[in-house]
């Protein structure tokens, strides 16, 4: 979960206009994300997955779920990079095509939940009064609903278990958490002088919420988006693993489900589990790193000082037991 302290967020100083020296003008905050090693790594990982998802049709077979009796339970080979399932489906294709679904689901759920949380939370904070009370009540109601049981129940009852149903349900379950955090941050921003100055100048509430408050909360909103994204991914995969998803689609969770029901591990076949699991873990790890990087970039207090070689020196000192090394470093 994000460590973000909603009150502490200040846009980093170099966030705004940077006259780009190169031909490519990169927005200031993006450049900062690129410089931070955590978010840079995370961004690279996620970008890689996006790339794979984009070229999926080119590198996978026509129908990943097709049975092929001749090729069942084959270990990874040059012909089937990730091996095949017990029905002969190519796991590599399943993973690669499954990436599309996962990314779409995560992004959609993230966008919907974050959008809802931002609009409701910020307006409630700024408007106060009855609007605030109503939104708070709604938030509290949704917060007390346990997400996994709800999803299981809904999945059990709904006719269609398609992608968009899942997106909707996930968004409904996850918006409340973020709404509370965004409301808290908007509350602290509301009393900042520039908001009061905008009021004194005669700005309307709508313009203040969208023009003054939201632009100053971009990093927190981005963090909310990433958070919902990976929770949606994990939850969705978990539900499908339990068999509550649509078992005819191509997705990581479904591959895992089939691997489990067909007891492949008992037969010593690790590849139907490993590859989709690894893909999921890789994507979620990328998102988590991205989130941590956003946290650090937005809250300067979380940034640790990275003096070159410091980690190595400490490691060496610990191994060798050299107090001299530590003393010299502390005196610096």
């Amino acid at each position: 979960m994000s460590q973000l302290d909603p009150i502490a967020l200040d846009l980093p100083p170099a966030a705004a206009a940077r006259r780009g020296r190169g031909r490519v003008r990169v927005p200031g905050w993006f450049a900062l994300l690129l410089r931070n090693p955590k978010s840079c790594t995370g961004l690279a990982m996620v970008a890689f997955v996006v790339l794979i998802a984009l070229i999926a049709p080119l590198i996978s077979v026509e129908h990943p779920n097709d049975f092929n009796i001749l090729a069942t339970r084959q270990a990874p080979s040059w012909h089937h990079l990730f091996g095949t399932t017990d029905q002969g489906s190519d796991i590599f294709s399943q993973v690669v095509v499954g990436a599309r679904r996962s990314l779409l689901l995560g992004a959609a759920a993230g966008a919907l939940a974050t959008g809802l949380a931002a609009i409701l939370g910020i307006t409630a904070a700024y408007a106060g009064g009855i609007v605030d009370e109503v939104v708070n009540f709604l938030t509290n109601v949704f917060l007390t609903i346990p997400p996994i049981p709800l999803l299981i129940v809904v999945a059990g009852y709904l006719e269609s278990r398609g992608l968009w149903t899942m997106v909707l349900v996930l968004a409904l379950v996850l918006w409340a958490f973020e709404a509370r955090i965004l409301r808290a941050q908007a509350l602290s921003l509301k009393n900042r002088d520039f908001v009061q100055a905008a009021r004194a100048a005669g700005e309307s509430t709508r313009r203040i919420v969208f023009g003054e408050l939201m632009p100053n909360m971009i990093s927190r909103i981005a963090a909310a988006f990433v958070l919902v994204f990976y929770i949606a991914l994990l939850t969705d995969a978990g539900l499908e693993f339990l068999g509550l998803g649509d078992t005819s689609t191509t997705s990581w969770g479904v591959t895992l489900y089939w691997a489990q029901t067909n007891s492949t591990v008992l037969q010593g076949e690790w590849w139907p589990f490993f590859f989709p699991g690894a893909a999921l873990a890789f994507t979620v790890l990328g998102l988590v790193l991205l989130l941590a990087g956003i946290d650090e970039v937005s809250n300067p207090r979380l940034r640790t000082e990275r003096t070159r070689g410091r980690l190595l020196r400490r490691l060496a000192a610990a191994l060798v037991g050299g107090r001299a090394l530590i003393r010299r470093e502390e005196a610096a």
Binding site: D10, L11, A15, A16, R192, D193, F194, Q196, A197, A198, A200, A201, E212, P215, N216, I218
Partner: peptide, 14 residues
């Protein structure tokens, strides 16, 4: 009209 105390806080950073 009003002028505030904190020169940084009274302007929208973005």
């Amino acid at each position: 009209q009003m002028i505030f105390q904190d020169p940084f806080g009274s302007l929208n950073p973005v």
